[in-house]
């Protein structure tokens, strides 16, 4: 069984202050059963043996649930496979002889740390601004002490599946973090536990999103298409509503 031969064009950047450039690599005998990250692992092994610096990229669980991995593959965040993180993208979706362009998320709010690794602390600061609820400390409450309607619970859960990978920002022509911010506002705003801070949350999180230098939403819908969790534009409508009606 013979594998695929691929040409990779990869963004290499030594550090935050380096200018960076695209570099070309050939990877031979790639198994179609490899994940995209495993393919990069193979290339990195060969780079190390050759005495070169391996390509830095973020990854952790490799199960599609942590949100660490993420790269723009042939111009699409996480690659063209829908509802898929880069770690869950498999090489069977590529053909022998393909040239694949790999770049980091591009946004001023996500500065490149090295190669394909970007600093997504801006997301943490948006969450810190309002992505929380006030709960009495102490023992865990009974599961049924606060009833939640089934459809609210479902919709809140859908929004809560956001893994904070940043693909929405990477895909947005405006570099907007609206889908990420809106997912958290929706998740907490739909639940009774999230009501006390509902107004202040929307205001604080939108203000932080702006302060980080993300762009504004123009409803292009690019974000929801690349989102590995399929967060819907409904979230953004809800964020707009909560923000505009906040006291």
């Amino acid at each position: 069984m013979s594998g695929m031969n691929l040409t990779l064009r990869v963004w290499r950047q030594k550090g935050p202050d380096d200018e960076g450039r695209m570099a070309t690599y050939k990877v031979e005998d790639v198994s179609p059963d490899m994940s995209f990250l495993e393919m990069l692992d193979v290339l990195n092994d060969r780079l190390i043996v050759a005495g070169d610096e391996p390509i830095a990229f973020d990854h952790d669980c490799r199960e599609g649930i942590c949100g660490m991995c993420g790269m723009v593959i042939n111009g699409v965040a996480h690659g063209e496979q829908r509802a898929t993180t880069t770690c869950q993208l498999h090489m069977r979706h590529f053909k022998d002889g393909d040239t694949i362009t790999i770049e980091p998320w591009r946004a001023s709010a996500f500065p490149v740390v090295k190669d394909l690794v970007v600093d997504r602390s801006a997301f943490d600061r948006i969450i810190q601004a309002g992505g929380f609820i006030s709960v009495p400390a102490g023992s865990a409450p009974d599961a049924h002490s606060v009833p939640v309607p089934k459809d609210s619970a479902d919709a809140a859960f859908d929004a809560a599946t956001c893994i904070g990978c940043g693909a929405c920002v990477a895909a947005c022509p405006n570099g907007s973090a609206s889908l990420f911010t809106a997912a958290k506002i929706t998740h907490l705003g739909l639940l009774p536990q999230g009501q006390p801070e509902r107004d202040s949350r929307a205001k604080a999180m939108v203000e932080q999103m702006d302060a980080e230098g993300f762009g504004g939403c123009t409803n292009t819908g690019e974000c929801t298409v690349v989102c590995p969790k399929g967060i819907s534009l409904d979230a953004i409508a809800r964020m707009n509503r909560d923000y505009l009606s906040a006291k």
């Binding site: 064009r9 963004w11 695209m22 723009v72 042939n74 111009g75 699409v76 063209e80 362009t101 770049e103 591009r106 946004a107 001023s108 709010a109 895909a171 022509p173 405006n174 570099g175 907007s176 230098g213 993300f214 762009g215 504004g216 123009t218 292009t220 819908g221 690019e222 929801t224 298409v225 690349v226």
Partner: peptide
């Protein structure tokens, strides 16, 4: 929006939705 993405993508960004 222009300031939010100072470095453009090298691969032609494919419109997925719009």
């Amino acid at each position: 929006a222009a300031k939010a993405r100072p470095v453009k993508y090298a691969a032609k960004r494919k419109n997925q939705a719009g």
